[in-house]
Design a protein around this nucleic acid. Structure first.
Lengths: 246, 246
DNA sequence: CGATACGTTGACGGAAATCAACCCCGGTGG
DNA sequence: CCACCGGGGTTGATTTCCGTCAACGTATCG
């Protein structure tokens, strides 16, 4: 496997976290033609209204999907980590109903839709797997809705941190219950539907309860059980096959 | 086409609202074996934790997906009308991460997963269409998130009513900007993440602004432009092909 | 060394929750 | 027939969570 293609490794790790992969399926994935691109922080990858003809694999960095309201408020819809294809839905929904942007400098790999279609034609199981991935995406949205609608800020933050921990662990980016979270409190607030000021206060609460620390870019979970309880977190909705999560 | 299969008509109308259907694809849909069932109001169709081997087509009535929090609060995730297959995702997500229940007495038609898989194998375009349907489902969730996170109750209700109007119109269940909405204010509140009391007050506002009336089961939109403005509603995210929406 | 962005804190106000009472209306059963 | 009941809608009083505004601290950087 030549150097250029190890970028697909992140994707393979991610897909293996949600279903087993056959060797020839991995091989087919590694043959996917990629258009690599480095994008600086805080820049749109695709914007609402675009009609992309390729989808974007996050090789590393952190991206998010978001929508702006007319009054200029931003709602972040999801965070996307190494191995995610955040705009896979553009395969069958031609125009983007939201934007996708970077939160930090990202390495991206664009895959043309026609190449994805060809891949899925020759490997139907991979097609089902990509479908499954978009379905899990929707399951995450559902939990997000419950949090926004029925949980208070304290619980919402806890839930989001639990989700990030589990997803990052699935692609081996967690060590000792700590991971890189290179976002501002304002961005966290935009994801949780609260103000930056309030996010700050609730984070202080979580620290005071000895559930987490967050210094610089690294978030460390001090009390995994406690954080899950605080967020009413049950990882079932992530539909992972690797069950070493607790 | 025998009587038993006209139940599929609702599904065909729905699918045609999101993509064109070839005659032989319609024919294949009409050959789908259905298990019909009438379910009384306020009863679960599938529950969180279930591992269904069939999916459920709403022939008529009104269903919703929901999640209960530990404190017993309910968050309704989506409403489902004639032609919808609310648990299509169970095709590839084996265990339900939420529940699906009726709001009024419903006629349902269950389709076995293996029959769906066979259909999609023989008609790949239908497979893509079902995938597209679940992607639109996710798009609706995204708008729901924006409403819950960044819009106030007044705007949220308006947006939901706009969405219902457009979706019902796509399956020809709207006449003169009026449709049947057989739910209580409490159920509406559970969908919008507010309390029943507050839902009541905001509905009074909407009536006072001459945007809607809601007497008994029938909701009538008096000022379609105004309601869309109030809800910041833009139907793009529903990805309909029939563009007679305004 | 200002400039800027982010984090933090306090004071105030507003949207919505909660609690409670009351009304209306369509069953239902004595 | 009517009393009773219960669910839903309506209203008011009070509380809570959270937003907004504003000030200030702190760290990084050209």
């Amino acid at each position: 496997m030549e150097g250029i293609h190890h970028h697909t490794a992140a994707l393979i790790r991610k897909l293996e976290s949600i279903a087993p992969l056959a060797p020839e399926e991995k091989a087919a994935l590694l043959r996917l033609p990629l258009r690599l691109k480095s994008v600086p922080a805080h820049q749109d990858i695709v914007s609402e209204g675009d009609r992309p003809c390729e989808s974007c694999l996050v090789v590393n960095g952190l991206a998010c999907r978001y929508i702006l309201t007319e009054e200029g408020k931003r709602q972040i819809l999801s965070f996307h980590i190494s191995g995610d294809i955040p705009d896979l839905q553009s395969l069958h929904l031609t125009t983007m109903d939201h934007s996708l942007g970077t939160l930090v400098p990202c390495q991206l790999a664009f895959i043309r839709h026609e190449d994805l279609h060809a891949l899925m034609r020759s490997h139907p199981r991979l097609g089902e797997l990509f479908w499954r991935d978009t379905l899990i995406d929707a399951a995450v949205f559902r939990q997000w809705i419950v949090g926004l609608g029925r949980r208070e800020a304290h619980s919402r933050i806890a839930h989001l941190l639990c989700e990030l921990l589990v997803r990052l662990r699935a692609v081996e980016l967690v060590e000792d219950h700590a991971f890189t979270l290179p976002i501002t409190q304002g961005e966290l607030a935009d994801a949780l539907g609260i103000s930056a000021v309030h996010a700050n206060r609730v984070l202080q609460d979580l620290r005071a309860e000895n559930l987490i620390t967050w210094r610089g870019d690294t978030l460390k979970v001090l009390d995994w059980q406690g954080l899950q309880r605080a967020g009413e977190f049950d990882p079932t909705y992530l539909h992972l096959v690797k069950k070493e999560a607790l």
